[in-house]
Design a binder for these strands. Structure first.
Length: 436
DNA sequence: AACTAGGCT
DNA sequence: GTATAAGCCTAGTTG
């Protein structure tokens, strides 16, 4: 048992006595089982969406090419950049460069969206072609005879996070015009429900605990929205008077801190002057002394030992932390801060998966014994089907959904005890979007 | 294979 | 003066 918040009394946290290596090993069979189970998708609905979005792409493409007055390949960034910036001479002063020329990334085109009627259409075209080429076209081709998708899960060697490939089920759309529609195509089988459980702001809770920052700990302990608390300190207003915009700013800064964001990065993210961004960051660290000291302490220790580690002792070596090359050194400093947070969150989730699977197995055994379910119906029992960094999804018979939701919440919230509460949000639905 | 872009947490 | 937010996977173009 080791308490991660070293600045405070030793017993405020309870971390099970298990190593990161053991977690790594014991989650593997859980992952293999999830791959085997697979997730059910509504193939007809995907094909329908494919046709629908495809028609909009065709129309956009026609409009864009007629607006631009030439035949170029819209999927070629280099052809597009040459046309927009060299031939049509659209303003370039705010446009980032790539190795080859001007960038046509969405964020850059957005800055000049009024400079030419084709620009907003190009942005839509990009959004829709992404959905078709990455999701709507490939997914139906990857299903088995029962319309289930079987991904491959792997554990990342640098942070311990779980990744998903062929297909990647961890980047199924949720935002944007058709995002929710696509997520709705991941469905529960007949008579089943999907139960989704999300850790609420797990990474911020971890940094609150590791740093012992008074304001952040206080917000979590009193169940005050942490972004609203940050906004309240930043804008010198009571929490009740914080606007949506102010909360959004605070949220971006809170996440920025986890990643080591600079004034430049913040100014880009919020679309504000760099000076203002610098002021926000200064003010943030003034209000959150604990976080400031934690970051200094972590990078200092990384320099001394050449590595950082997570709550269960997973180590990441940082080869450039003492480099004379500022670019490389600062990249390692950001990893030094981020890896223990992201990696610890990954371990907490994996330990919850191991524990949850154990309890589901025990439950399944009992169900079988009391013959509450048909003996050979492999589908009629709760199974983990998805894991997405801070979320787990279980598919289970409708009748068990509430019970399973409760179990997931209980297991995930108590698998470790930090010096702030861990909160989980659960939902039940017929598809992935509805279960949140 | 490198580059650019973009989906998710 | 220069680059600038952690981690992952996939797709299309280019040479």
């Amino acid at each position: 048992m080791l308490c991660p918040c070293e600045k405070k009394n030793k017993d405020c946290c309870l971390v099970p006595d298990i190593s990161s290596e053991q977690i790594f090993r014991r989650v593997e069979p859980v992952l293999r089982e999830m791959e085997k189970t697979g997730v059910l998708i509504d193939v007809d609905r995907i094909k329908q969406l494919n046709r629908q979005v495809g028609r909009r792409i065709d129309k956009l493409k026609k409009d864009i090419l007629s607006d631009l007055g030439t035949e170029i390949n819209l999927d070629s960034p280099s052809q597009l950049a040459d046309l927009l910036f060299n031939q049509l001479k659209l303003p370039t002063e705010d446009i980032r460069r790539t190795q080859s020329g001007y960038s046509t990334a969405a964020g850059e085109l957005y800055k000049i969206k009024h400079a030419h009627p084709a620009i907003p259409k190009i942005l839509k075209y990009r959004e829709f072609t992404k959905l078709v080429s990455t999701y709507l076209e490939p997914l139906p081709k990857l299903v088995d005879e029962r319309d289930r998708l079987h991904t491959h899960y792997a554990q990342d060697a640098r942070t311990g996070r779980i990744s998903s490939s062929e297909p990647n089920l961890q980047n199924i759309p949720i935002k944007g015009t058709y995002g929710a529609d696509i997520r709705k195509t991941i469905v529960a089988g007949k008579g089943n429900k999907l139960v989704s459980a999300d850790y609420s702001q797990i990474e911020l809770r971890i940094i609150a605990c590791f740093s012992g920052d008074r304001q952040m700990m206080d917000a979590f302990n009193k169940n005050i929205d942490v972004h609203t608390r940050t906004a309240s300190l930043l804008f010198h207003k009571p929490e009740g008077k914080i606007s949506k915009e102010e909360r959004r700013f605070a949220k971006t800064i809170n996440f920025g801190v986890l990643y080591g964001m600079s004034p430049f990065g913040l100014s880009q993210a919020l679309n504000i002057p760099q000076e203002m961004a610098a002021k926000f960051i200064f003010e943030y660290f003034h209000n959150h002394q604990g976080i400031k000291e934690y970051i200094e302490e972590t990078t200092y220790r990384a320099r001394k030992t050449g590595a950082v580690e997570t709550i269960f002792g997973f180590k990441r070596k940082l080869f450039n932390i003492k480099s004379d090359n500022r670019i490389l050194r600062e990249a390692d400093e950001r990893m030094a801060v981020n890896t223990p947070i992201q990696g610890s969150a990954a371990e907490i989730l994996k330990l919850a998966m191991i524990t949850l699977n154990q309890k589901l197995d025990i439950k399944n055994q009992k169900q079988k014994d009391s013959s509450a379910l048909p003996q050979n119906d492999m589908d009629a029992r709760p199974r983990l089907i998805l894991t997405v960094h801070d979320e787990l999804v279980v598919e289970c018979p409708e009748k068990q959904a509430k019970e399973v939701a409760k179990l997931m919440e209980e297991v995930m919230e108590n698998v470790v005890k930090l010096c702030v509460p861990i909160k989980v949000e659960v939902g039940i639905g017929d598809n992935w979007a509805a279960s949140k």
